[in-house]
């Protein structure tokens, strides 16, 4: 069965969101979420590499011998990450320096391999491309929300513009590592509770429509 494009996008953004549902890829990108600008750049990098990586891998999936499949997947993905790195170095050297090793670490971001294995290995190139973009964005939205909270509370700024006045005391904890773990946990809590409530509502509706069947 071929999934429709709309379903692929909805899956990536919400139903099967890489962070909420699969808990993938939080390794390399959490580190840059104390700054909205860096986060946006990392999201763009991850989305680009996932989309084109899935596209390419889906296109050559018939040619890969099973034994060396993993290593070839990693090599193809790292090719796209190198492109991201070169572009950043050429056009935004200051940011590239700030991000340090984290651009290279997009290669081992579990989302890339995860989508290549879970989706691109069984679907045509175009669907894989859209799936890559949807997953990159689904992941990006969550990270962006975390980055906004961390940068605002940690520095009183957004994208470097000062929003809070002099009265504002920055929360130092927000620019340090622990807050990122706490905020991801909070986001996860919110999405889980929302899903549980939606599920309960759906069950209640079913029970109302057919009381005897739901009782079983």
């Amino acid at each position: 069965m071929k999934p429709s494009n709309a379903k692929i996008i909805k899956d990536g953004l919400w139903t099967n969101n890489p962070i909420f549902v699969q808990v993938l890829g939080i390794c390399s990108t959490l580190a840059v979420t104390n700054n909205v600008r860096n986060t946006l750049i990392m999201i763009a990098g991850v989305t680009f590499a996932t989309a084109f990586g899935s596209f390419t891998l889906s296109g050559i999936k018939g040619l890969l011998p099973r034994k060396v499949r993993m290593i070839i997947q990693v090599l193809v993905l790292s090719f796209y990450v190198i492109l991201v790195d070169i572009v950043l170095r050429a056009y935004a050297p200051a940011i590239s320096k700030q991000l340090g090793p984290y651009v290279g670490l997009i290669i081992t971001n579990c989302i890339l391999m995860g989508r290549a294995e879970a989706f691109a290995a069984a679907n045509p190139p175009w669907a894989s491309f859209i799936d890559g973009i949807a997953n990159g964005l689904g992941y990006g939205v969550v990270l962006l929300a975390i980055a906004v909270v961390r940068e605002f509370l940690g520095f009183g700024t957004l994208l470097g513009f000062r929003l809070a006045g002099d009265w504002f005391t920055p929360w130092t904890i927000m620019i340090m590592a622990p807050s990122a773990f706490f905020l991801v946990a909070m986001a996860l809590w919110g999405s889980n509770s929302y899903n549980a409530r939606a599920e309960a509502r759906r069950k209640a509706a079913v029970a109302k429509a057919a009381p005897d069947r739901a009782a079983k």
Partner: peptide
Amino acid sequence: PAGLKGTGITLV
């Protein structure tokens, strides 16, 4: 709390 079970509480 139910929503925090598993991965959530581990992250905390």
